[in-house]
């Protein structure tokens, strides 16, 4: 068990060391998310539409799109010099690889989201600080679900010739429940409703997270096999 934790943390440490050196991923994700928000602002007439109605949707579309960049990069990095094979040769449970990648994907995406939030607040004139705590819970649940399924599918897609195309095609339809749930919840949170009013959505998101982490633990062995 101790070895398992140190292996997971070694993978996370490695991903962060690389990121601190290159700063490729974070800047790309951040700028991309910003661009998505800008393009949506141009395509929606904010003087006609209520900002708080379209805001949550735009915010999450930006998160998901830039999160996909992160996922694509995540396993491409491992495939580059055959590192994934070396990881598979380690005396490690395959789930350690999954959790290591899941945690580093999750942390990258969360940090990026925390940087986007203030900009979102300014662009849409929505006061987030008032409802910050419930909002963070919603973001946590949604990002976890996205990364749980996304890490599994990106490990799968990384072996395909057309991985950049296939990942979103495989991932997005499966993400529909979580997208609907987080957008709904974000909207309600920003409208000042307490979390207890949306237990069905929280339950749905939490079960999504649990189901897909569970499925990943059970199937990752079959994906990470030459």
């Amino acid at each position: 068990m101790n070895l398992f934790i140190s292996q997971v943390s070694a993978i996370v440490w490695k991903d962060f060391t690389i990121e601190f050196k290159t700063r490729e991923l974070f800047s790309a994700m951040f700028i991309f998310a910003l661009l998505v928000i800008l393009i949506f602002i141009f395509s929606v007439n904010l003087s006609v539409v209520e900002a708080s109605e379209v805001g949550p949707g735009i915010l999450w579309v930006a998160f998901l799109f830039s999160g996909t960049i992160g996922l694509n990069r995540s396993f491409a990095l491992e495939k580059e010099n055959g590192c994934l094979m070396a990881l598979m040769l380690m005396p490690a449970d395959r789930t350690a690889i999954y959790f290591g990648k899941l945690i580093s994907n999750f942390v990258f995406l969360t940090i990026m989201e925390l940087f986007i939030l203030p900009l979102f607040m300014i662009f849409f004139n929505i006061d987030l600080l008032e409802h910050l705590f419930p909002l963070l819970i919603v973001i946590f649940l949604g990002t976890l679900g996205f990364c749980a399924l996304g890490t599994l599918l990106s490990s799968l897609a990384s072996n395909l010739k057309t991985r950049e195309i296939m990942l979103p095609i495989l991932l997005y339809p499966l993400l529909v429940p979580i997208v609907i749930a987080v957008v709904r919840m974000t909207g309600q949170v920003l409208a000042g409703e307490p979390l207890s009013e949306m237990m069905n959505w929280i339950g749905l998101t939490a079960s999504f997270d649990i189901i897909y982490i569970g499925v990943s633990i059970m199937t990752i062995d079959h994906i990470l096999e030459e």
């Binding site: 399924l149 599994l152 599918l153 799968l156 495989l170 499966l174 529909v176 429940p177 979580i178 609907i180 749930a181 069905n200 749905l204 079960s207 999504f208 189901i211 897909y212 499925v215 199937t219 079959h222 994906i223």
Partner: peptide, 17 residues
Amino acid sequence: VLGIVGFLDIPLIHFSV
């Protein structure tokens, strides 16, 4: 793997929609 993941999504999709 996709066959399993996809089918498990059906109830979630159903309720969310």
